[in-house]
Design a protein around this nucleic acid. Sequence first.
DNA 1: GTCCAGGATACTC
DNA 2: GAGTATCATGGA
Length: 277
Amino acid sequence: MVRIEKLCIDLDNTFRCGQTFRWKRQEDGSWLGNVDGHAVRAVREGDDLCLYGAQEADAAYWRKYFDADSDYEKLLSCVMDEHLRTAMDACPGIRVLDQPFYESLCSFIISANNNIPRITAIVERFCAIAPMDENGLHAFPTPQMVLDAGEDWVKSIGSGYRAKYLWEAAQHMADGFDAQALRNMSYPEACECIRQFKGVGEKVADCVLLFSCGHRAAFPVDTWSEKMLMQWYGMMGKRPQLKVQAMEHFGAYGGIAQQYLFYHAMQSKLKKENNEK
DNA sequence: GTCCAGGATACTC
DNA sequence: GAGTATCATGGA
């Protein structure tokens, strides 16, 4: 078991906020996950995060996965305002995860013009060809597993027009794409590089760079972020212009702010809809 | 039937 | 370079 002390993570908010689609909540409030083939059960005990099934030797890996050495209040103090404060108070304890690259890439290719429940369902079917762990969760497939399963199989999981993007991504990865190199590039360089993948536009690129490459200035602008930036921050323009303004405004850790604001915007909308019924 | 969902791409002007 | 049609799918 690996214990990460005083992380104060909110597992529900972290795993439901749209950055990952594979963790599964159990009735007792714990969450089962399979990361890089490692099966774990995440449990909040007091202020600590306990990862049952994780090896002590992998403690550093898990600290990095949960971004345990970053103090978000401190990192965002210079851009704190009433909206970010409200979002962080309403949806506390979100950790911006540092996930395996290929899983993040495929997940956000699938996310294009899609909704979270359906993304989750498609990702689950995508994982069915990978080995199952002792908790009954599949690993995320390797590119080679996808290539072995065939393009017709990729089409069969209901990913629609994104199937060809997933297929080509597996080929590009198998050809030796160096995902690790993205971490050492500047943000603009990494952004340009990752857009080699078909189906990866500006927004998907930002999600992958933020959630699996350590680029925490990346500020994904989707439908929710777009509404949020206009309604809460008075920004104007199309998405590319909004993104430029947002990155300028929120700075080096803008992606973390974005994740709180995005999730809160979505939650607010949900509440509003429920009240109207 | 229409609209929407963590958009991207190819095409037109 | 800025608009626009098209791309699958399923739930509201």
